[in-house]
Each structure stands twice: as structure tokens, then as C-alpha cells.
């Protein structure tokens, strides 16, 4: 788009033999902004006046908040459920990841191989497949998990692989001399991990950890498949009752509101950590 518009302006300039360089550079500077404004204007004008889209239908089906009136309280309990699921799976994932990373830092070849196999396995299994497997296959051997618990179990298994990697890179980022110094002070390996390595590693760990949190929040939505009464399930029920897609739009808006602050926070953290690593 930009290229085409630049080319068009160039052609026009050459056609009218415009030699004034100052004006031309000014046009070049504001050209992309102007062009995107024109593109959006084009679509808006086209959509309103010339296409045969039915905008009243759009408003009625997608933003019909009159029909939703008095039904908002239905979304409170699934919202809390989702936050609960993501909290517990995040907590468990961080716990497992931390323990595995610490075990891995002892450099036992056999155990390290096992942990690497675990990480590879759970990094490559799709979340949906694991949730379905845990919920639909385990009951055959008598291991009945409530749907919410099965989602928590599979999410914490999945994301513990990522947190293991994150914690490991964090521990690796701390200088080895620090460990030796801690040993010289008479600290055991666990003690030096607790008092010397981990506090320094956390600076490296926190930004990727927030992106894992975002992923967990997003992945809770697949709990819909195993019949957890969460936001989407409720929205689809209500969609059937009131005959409009507004609940779905409302739910996606809710997700957006929950996740967006974390996203903004994490991108700010990433910028910060990039600045730190430069210094």
C-alpha cells in the first residue's frame, strides 16, 4: 500500500515537474499518514453508503445491549472461575518449573535427560489435546477428575515446561563466580540458590513469566471443550436464549479487558529489561 501510494505521488510530482524540494519532502513525510486516513475514509464511506451491508442488522445482532439488560450477573461466577483456574495453574506451573530448574542446576546427567524429555514432550503437545486426553481418557483407568481440575492439571503440566526453561535461563544468567563466592562463605547449594542466585535471576525471569501468564489466561478458554461452565459456555447458552450474538461479543470484550493490562504490563517490562541488558 505504502509503496504504491509513494509511487503514485512520485509519478504525479514528475508529471507536473515539481522541483521545490522542501514541499516534496514534507509531502513524503506525511504521505503514509495521509494515505491511511484516506484508506480508512474510503472503507467507511464505502461501507455506509455504497455496500449493501445491513448495518441495522449488525447493530441488532452484535451490540444489542437492550436484550442483555439484567443478565450481566450471570457472567460473574464464570469470570471468577476463570481467574481461579488461571491462578492455580500459574501457581502450580511456577512451582513445578522452579523445582525442576533447581534440580537441573545440580547437573546430574540422567535426571537432566529426564527433565529435558519432559520439557520437549510438554512443549510439543497441543493444549487442547492434553485437556481432552486428561478429561476423556483418564476416567477409563478410574482417575476421575472434575472438569475444572482436569483443566488446571493439564495447564500446569503444559506451562511448567515453559517455566522450567525460563527459570533455567534465569539461573544460567547469574555469574558462576557468585556461586563460588557463596560456597566460599560456607553456604550449601540450596542456600546459595535461595539467597544468592534466585534473587538475581528474578530480574531476567519476570518478563517472560508475564507472557506465560498471558498464555495461561488465554488458554483457559479451551476449558469450554470439556464442559466447564466458563464464560464462552455461558455466552453460548445465553445466545440461544435471546437470539443474538451480543453475549459472545460481550465475553470477548471481557477477555480483552482481563488480558490487556497484563499484555501492556509485559510489553513495558520487556522494554525495561532490554534497556537493562543494554547497560
Amino acid at each position: 500500500m505504502v509503496f504504491i501510494q509513494v509511487k503514485i505521488i512520485q509519478l504525479m510530482c514528475s508529471m507536473i515537474k515539481w522541483r521545490n524540494k522542501a514541499i516534496t519532502t514534507k509531502i513524503y513525510k506525511y504521505l503514509p499518514n495521509l494515505s491511511i486516513l484516506m484508506t480508512i475514509m474510503f472503507f467507511v464511506v464505502y461501507g455506509i453508503f455504497f455496500s449493501n451491508a445491513d448495518w441495522s442488522l449488525f447493530q441488532e445482532q452484535f451490540f444489542n445491549f437492550e436484550k442483555m439488560r439484567g443478565r450481566y450477573h450471570i457472567f460473574i461466577s464464570p469470570l471468577i472461575l476463570i481467574l481461579k483456574i488461571s491462578f492455580f495453574s500459574c501457581f502450580l506451573a511456577i512451582l513445578i518449573g522452579l523445582i525442576m530448574a533447581i534440580i537441573r542446576s545440580f547437573n546430574n546427567v540422567f535426571i537432566n535427560g529426564l527433565i529435558t524429555a519432559y520439557v520437549v514432550l510438554f512443549r510439543s503437545i497441543p493444549a487442547m489435546v492434553l485437556v481432552v486426553l486428561v478429561y476423556f481418557a483418564l476416567p477409563y483407568v478410574g482417575l476421575n477428575l472434575v472438569s475444572t481440575n482436569s483443566v488446571i492439571a493439564s495447564l500446569s503440566l503444559l506451562f511448567s515446561a515453559y517455566t522450567t526453561e525460563i527459570f533455567r535461563s534465569g539461573i544460567n544468567s547469574v555469574d558462576r563466580f557468585q556461586l563460588e563466592a557463596a560456597n566460599a562463605l560456607g553456604m550449601g547449594s540450596l542456600q546459595s540458590m535461595r539467597w544468592v542466585v534466585l534473587p538475581q535471576a528474578f530480574r531476567v525471569i519476570i518478563p517472560p513469566l508475564t507472557s506465560v501468564l498471558i498464555d495461561i489466561l488465554k488458554t483457559t478458554s479451551i476449558a469450554y471443550v470439556v464442559g466447564v461452565p466458563e464464560l464462552i459456555a455461558r455466552a453460548r447458552q445465553m445466545e440461544g436464549v435471546i437470539g443474538s450474538v451480543t453475549p459472545l461479543i460481550f465475553v470477548s470484550f471481557l477477555y480483552f479487558i482481563i488480558i490487556l493490562p497484563v499484555v501492556l504490563f509485559s510489553s513495558r517490562l520487556e522494554k525495561q529489561s532490554r534497556r537493562w541488558s543494554k547497560n
Binding site: F62, I214, K218, I222, F256
Partner: peptide, 24 residues
């Protein structure tokens, strides 16, 4: 980008597949 980072794929799929048919 921020919109994509903050929207679960399940929600987007359901809106596209079950929502858009209401608009023909």
C-alpha cells in the same frame, strides 16, 4: 498486535464461525 495478544483463539473462532452467520 495488542488485540491479537489479548484475544484467545477460541473466542475469535467462535465469533467468526458462530457469530458472523448472523450477518449473512
Amino acid at each position: 498486535l495488542e488485540f491479537c495478544r489479548a484475544t484467545p483463539i477460541v473466542v475469535a473462532l467462535i465469533v467468526v464461525y458462530f457469530g458472523l452467520p448472523f450477518l449473512n
